[in-house]
Nucleic acid binder design. Structure first.
Lengths: 215, 215
DNA sequence: TACTATACGGAACGATGGTTCCGTTTGTCA
DNA sequence: TGACAAACGGAACCATCGTTCCGTATAGTA
């Protein structure tokens, strides 16, 4: 299941075939809007206003709404574009010959992504806007992919057999959302390492034990 | 330092001695407001409106503002009342003869509290309203107390020497904030256990390995 | 009981932010 | 090049929320 859902086939709020007939300026503006929204939501999370997005895109709010019927739809389009590579990466990792390493790497990657694109972390804990659709659309797919990774890593005895995908996702969401002023990227990667340590069977390997400054 | 700050000495936004001269209905209403705010903020976090609080308290908004000059002040009063027992508990735990156990128990307690009173978790990641004063007022005190606990547990060799108070608080904040629909209390305590496992030196002891249903 | 300081309720205000609407501009095609 | 559908900008609208203000009610006191 979920075999080759090419993602581009998903609407992204405007039927693809219709894109062919778009006026050139319209297509360009749509691109600018997505770009601006991506930039702003990366640093400010889902709380940026449509006005700000429109301004950065050098476009009126009307143009934003012509392309994305609602703020949630715009967010959904962005989330999809961010999550697709992650799902793909998870699928790719599933073929690795070192499932333990692959799993840890993926967790790290997911955490990085949430740090780079704050709106993703926001979306995952559903704070603010109504983004349920976006979440349902993709979240389950990502979960399934990560779940498969997890099971493989457990099968080869690298990950504790008593953790489940719920544990993993909960801790990921937690980490993703705890990055305000208090948590710089160094701190974050320390925490990711700690989380990984708690999942690995032998472990204590991820965070360098002796050499690390204890602050 | 921080020797016996009795907390009642802190303003709580209305000088104590003035409380003596309050009219009986005024005192009663103030109590109702605090109670209502506590109830609502426990489940809805800091995002409840003053109108809702006033309604639940059977009081006009004016009455709320007469007692608490601003929404932040009301929140601060609530936070203080929630955090004081925690700080006290941390101090008490510092006297334990099993610092490792004491530390783990305290982490669990802190997590429970954030789950019971969502506004606390909200406040800790500073989402929404401006609550910097409340945080600064107490947060540092709590940090210091937990930090002391941590050091003791490290001194007796129960907690990994390479983790610092920043790691702990970051992971706590994460857990506290990741409890929306996806994370019921069972899931949460599993995650707390995992976090503790990652901090303990020998560990794997907290989460029952074999007997736990893997979902 | 009558008087007054105190407290009360809730309408109104101002700011913010999502969404709609419409008069104007512009790309496209004959 | 002229005409028209398509797209544009941004003012205006509406809902929410924190906060203020003021006419009214009432606890406390003599």
């Amino acid at each position: 299941m979920s075999t080759g859902i090419t993602s581009a086939e998903r609407s992204e709020n405007a039927p693809l075939d219709a894109e062919r007939h778009m006026r050139s300026d319209a297509r360009r503006n749509r691109e600018h809007v997505l770009e601006a929204a991506g930039t702003l939501m990366a640093t400010h999370g889902v709380d940026v206003s449509i006005d700000e997005i429109a301004e950065l895109a050098h476009v009126g709010v009307g143009t934003v709404y012509r392309n994305f019927p609602t703020k949630g739809a715009l967010l959904e389009a962005l989330l999809l574009s961010r999550l697709e590579p992650l799902v793909a990466a998870a699928h790719a990792a599933a073929g690795s010959d070192d499932p333990g390493e692959a799993f840890v790497n993926f967790v790290r990657k997911l955490s990085d992504e949430m740090c780079d694109f704050k709106a993703l972390a926001d979306a995952m804990v559903a704070s603010g806007v109504d983004i349920h659709k976006a979440k349902q659309t993709i979240s389950s797919e990502l979960m399934a992919a990560v779940g498969a990774l997890l099971e493989q890593a457990q099968a080869v005895g690298r990950i504790r057999p008593d953790v489940n995908i719920g544990d993993v996702s909960a801790m990921m969401m937690g980490l993703g959302h705890a990055d305000p002023l208090l948590m710089d990227s160094a701190q974050r990667s320390r925490c990711v390492a700690l989380v990984c340590d708690s999942l690995l069977i032998d472990a204590r390997s991820v965070l360098p034990r002796r050499s690390f400054p204890t602050n």
